[in-house]
Amino acid sequence: MDDRRMIRLNTDLLGGLFIGLFGAVGLVGSWGGRFNAWIFPRVNSIVILAMALALIVRGVVRREVEDVMPRENATRLVLPMMAGLVAYYFLFTRLGFVLTTTLLFGGAMFMLSTRRTWQRAVVVFGVAAVVAGFFYVVFGEVFYVPWPTGTWLEALGLGR
């Protein structure tokens, strides 16, 4: 594949730095304290840091880059999907399960579609609404899952 179309990264160097962060947090957090409660996280933090160091050294020495993902899709599709996932969490309790799901599930299906026409929008949001309703009822009634109904409904005095 054409080089410019792919995001290429030194995964050893970046990976070492990224996972090293967790090791550092773990080591700082587990320093001191009762021996038998903290020894295990401390050992693991040290292993992470050691491996991170090895990866960083290798990354710097070898300077190898790898194809990671197609550039265009990464910014146009993957990032919005990730943002949507985070948005879901924040809307979940406020708008409630059904509305959030309809909006974001439908939105994701629409965004990923090859042809984005208004007919298509009607279809995907319709599908999303039906799916949301289905899971709301089935999980709510059979598994007794207490879905959030949304704070806006509660503000109106309708939610639970």
Binding site: I19, G23, V47, I48, M51, A52, A54, L55
Partner: peptide, 9 residues
């Protein structure tokens, strides 16, 4: 290296 770091994580 990455496997071991992942396991420890």
């Amino acid at each position: 290296f990455k496997g071991l770091a992942g396991g420890a994580l």
